[in-house]
Simulated scan of single mutants.
Amino acid sequence: MPGKPVPEEVRREQILRAAFEVAAREGIGGLTVRAVAAEAEVSHALVLFHFKRKEGLIHELLDWLIANTSVLHVSEDIARFPRALDRLHALLQQEMARLSHEPRHTRLFFEYWALGARHAQVRARIGTELERYRAAFRSIMEELLLAEPTTFAGATADGLAAVAVSWIQGCAVQAMNDPAHFDTGEYLAAVRGIIGQLARAGEAA
């Protein structure tokens, strides 16, 4: 007897996950409908039914990748911290751990970034999402500036958000380069040490 039919949204997610596995292994250049169908163990026609053509699959995979890498989620545990500085510290720790956990996502994201040099639509999509991710930090930075104006004298919410995102993205890149030896705790401790040294240098100046 035939099995129960698989809902279209479940099948679509299955195909996108298979597309990620192919692209992570072979690069975007190796992302063919036939390769994805084989990885997902579905027919070539079913992949085309959901994504129409290879180009559609490439763009949909970028959306899937962004949803799994560049969307900021503030957990309930983090939101309960009363101090903005404590929430920021926990959020940095969460994002550094999350993005360093799967270096293949970072590697593929950079490959899409390179593809954007030749494709305006890809470039615009990535640029929009990177800005959205940075903007998600602005509200906590604005609260931080109000709570501790002396500590962050001269800083702006935009500047602090940009620095925070730079730390997180740098963490992801280091984890991609050396996943066997990268340690999020050591990275965060180094960040705290650098901040402390810069603060003391600023006070002495």
Rank of each mutant, 00 (worst) to 15 (best):
C171F: 07
V47H: 10
T184M: 01
E95V: 00
L130P: 00
Q93K: 14
R138K: 15
I168G: 06
R192P: 00
L115I: 01
A67M: 04
V22L: 03
D77Y: 03
G127H: 07
A135R: 15
D158A: 14
S166F: 14
A24S: 15
A124F: 03
A35I: 02
H181V: 03
F81Q: 09
E21V: 10
A45S: 12
V6M: 11
R125W: 02
D178H: 08
D178F: 08
G193K: 07
P2L: 12
E9Q: 13
P2T: 08
D178E: 07
L72T: 03
T151K: 13
V47W: 08
E55C: 02
D86V: 02
F152L: 15
I66E: 01
D77M: 05
V74L: 13
R17Y: 00
L198S: 14
H119Y: 09
S75H: 05
W167N: 04
P7N: 06
H50E: 12
P2F: 09
R123V: 02
L130D: 02
R83Y: 06
A147V: 05
L16W: 00
T151R: 15
L88Q: 14
A189Y: 03
L85E: 14
Q169D: 11
W167M: 10
T69V: 02
A199F: 07
F49V: 14
L99I: 09
E26I: 05
A147H: 04
I15R: 10
H119N: 13
A157S: 13
M141H: 06
G185R: 14
L48V: 14
A19R: 06
A67S: 12
R87N: 05
L61K: 04
K4C: 01
G154T: 09
E203M: 12
A117L: 11
A204K: 12
A67F: 01
M1I: 10
A45G: 09
H119R: 15
L145C: 02
H105C: 08
A153M: 07
M176V: 03
T69E: 11
R83A: 11
A201M: 09
A45E: 14
S43C: 04
A79E: 12
A180K: 12
G127V: 05
A190F: 11
A189C: 03
R123S: 11
D158V: 08
